[in-house]
Design a protein around this nucleic acid. Structure first.
Lengths: 233, 233
DNA sequence: TTCGTTTCTTGACTTACGTCAAGGATATCT
DNA sequence: AGATATCCTTGACGTAAGTCAAGAAACGAA
C-alpha cells in the first residue's frame, strides 16, 4: 500500500482543481484522501442525501442524473477522470441535487467536506480553480437548457455528433462512447425516438450507423439541423 | 452628483458580492463603478458579444434569455436589485452566453472586467461570495433542466406558483410579477399553452385568475401535479 | 458455443403542445 | 377620455415525440 503514495501525489498534481498547489498542501491532501471503488451500475450518492464530501474521479465514468416520477432519466453530465463529483454540494453544504451512478468500474478519491473547507481557506488557488470549474458547468447547463427548450431531438442529436466529431473524430467517423439508451437520456429523450431519428438520418444519407460507430456523411446538413432547419426529418 | 456618493457606498456595502469587504476596498470600488441606465425593453448585452465587464443591478429587472432560430425565447433567469449580471463571463473572459434585456427602467453599476480581476486577486472574500452565487445559479439551472426534460407544462406552472406562494404569498393569493407572456417564456412554453392550462386549472377548481393575481384554491393537488400526477388536465 | 439478459429497433397508436388566425381585454400615451 | 398598441384568450389544426408491445440483435456468463 505504501508504495502507491507516489502515484497518488502525481495524480493529485495533475488534477485541475489542485493546479498550482504547493507540495506541502498536496502531501497533506494525500494523507486525507480516501480511495473508494464502485462497480458498474453502483450508486455513489442519491438526490437529497446530505453531502459529506466530494469525489475526484481517478478512473471510470459516473453519470449524474435526475429521475422523473415515472422513472424517466435525464443525465445532467458525465464525469470522467480528473473531474470532480459533488463538489458544489460539499462547498455549499447543501444536499446532493441529483443521483450519481458509476457507468463502469470506477475508482475515486473522496475528500471529506470539512477538510475541503479548511483547504479552501488556506489555498486561494483552489477556489480560483473551482470557480473556473463552476463557470464551465454553468455554460454547459445554459446550453442544455437552450437545447431542451428551443431545439428538437434531431437538432440535439446532430449537435452531439458534431461535438463528438470535433473532440474525438477520426476522419468523418465518430464513436459514441456510451450506450444508445444512455445517449437518449443525455439528449432528453427515449431510446425509441433516438433510434427512429438515427434511421431517418441514415435514410437521408446524412450518416451511417454501425454499432457505436457513426460515419458523418453530410456535416453541412447536420449543422443546418442544429440551427433549426427541418431537413425533411 | 457628488452628494450621491454616500448612497453608492451604502448600496455597495449591502450587495452580497461585496459582503465583508473592508471600507477601503468599497471606496475604491465606488471610484471605479460606472452608473448606467436602461429603458424598458432596452438591450444590455447580446449573446456572443465580448464581455468587457459586468453589472450590479441597483433598480429594475433584467431578463437573461436565449432565442431559437424561429425567434422563440427561453428566459434563463430574471435578475433583480443587488444581483449580478454577466459576472461569469467577466470572470472567465468568455463572451456573454445569452442576451440580456431590461424588463423595466433599470439602473445598474458597471464594473469593468480588468478592475474586477484585480479586485478578485486582492480580496478573497469576493471570490467566496461569487462562488456562493454560482452555486445557487447552478442549483437553479439543475432544477430548470429537470423541469424542462421531466415535467410537463402544468407541472412547471404549478411549481412556479407554489414557489411564488412560499416566497411572497399573502394568504392563498400570489401575484405573478411578470407578464403572462414572459412567464410562458420562463416556463419554456408559449402564451397560448399557458393560457389554456390556467383555464383548465380554473375549471378544475385549483385556482382562480384575475389579471396577475392568482388565488390558489387547492395547493394539495397543485403539489401532486408538480410530482407528476395528471389530475385530469 | 449456448443460454439468458440486456439493449436496440420497429410498428401502431396516443397525446401534449406548438402553429395559425382572429377576437377581446388591458395597458399606455397624448 | 379616446386612440393605439400590446397583451391575452380561444378555437381549429398539425406534428414531434412519447407509450405500448413485440421481435431482433448484441452482450456476458457459464
Amino acid at each position: 500500500m505504501n508504495e502507491k503514495k507516489p502515484d497518488r501525489l502525481t495524480l493529485l498534481k495533475n488534477t485541475p482543481l489542485f493546479l498550482k498547489l504547493p507540495e506541502s498542501a498536496l502531501r497533506m491532501l494525500d494523507g486525507i484522501l480516501i480511495e473508494r471503488s464502485f462497480l458498474k451500475g453502483e450508486n455513489i450518492f442519491t438526490e437529497g442525501s446530505e453531502s459529506d464530501g466530494f469525489y475526484i474521479i481517478i478512473k471510470g465514468r459516473v453519470k449524474v442524473f435526475k429521475l422523473s416520477a415515472e422513472g424517466k432519466e435525464q443525465i445532467l453530465h458525465i464525469v470522467g477522470a480528473k473531474e470532480l463529483l459533488g463538489a458544489v454540494s460539499a462547498f455549499a453544504g447543501t444536499p446532493y441535487p441529483a443521483h450519481a451512478d458509476a457507468m463502469e468500474k470506477t475508482t475515486a478519491f473522496f475528500l471529506p467536506g470539512k477538510d475541503f473547507l479548511v483547504l479552501i481557506q488556506k489555498e486561494p488557488s483552489v477556489v480560483m480553480n473551482m470557480m473556473a470549474n463552476l463557470s464551465m458547468r454553468l455554460q454547459h447547463f445554459t446550453r442544455m437548457i437552450e437545447d431542451l427548450s428551443l431545439k428538437e431531438v434531431p437538432g440535439r442529436l446532430a449537435a452531439y455528433l458534431l461535438y463528438l466529431h470535433e473532440r474525438t473524430g477520426r476522419g468523418d467517423v465518430v464513436e459514441i462512447d456510451i450506450s444508445k439508451g444512455q445517449l437518449a437520456s443525455l439528449l432528453g429523450t427515449i431510446p425509441e425516438t433516438l433510434s427512429r431519428i438515427l434511421r431517418k438520418m441514415s435514410e437521408k444519407g446524412l450518416l451511417k450507423v454501425s454499432g457505436r460507430k457513426v460515419r458523418l456523411l453530410n456535416r453541412k446538413v447536420l449543422h443546418d439541423i442544429v440551427n433549426g432547419e427541418k431537413a425533411g426529418l
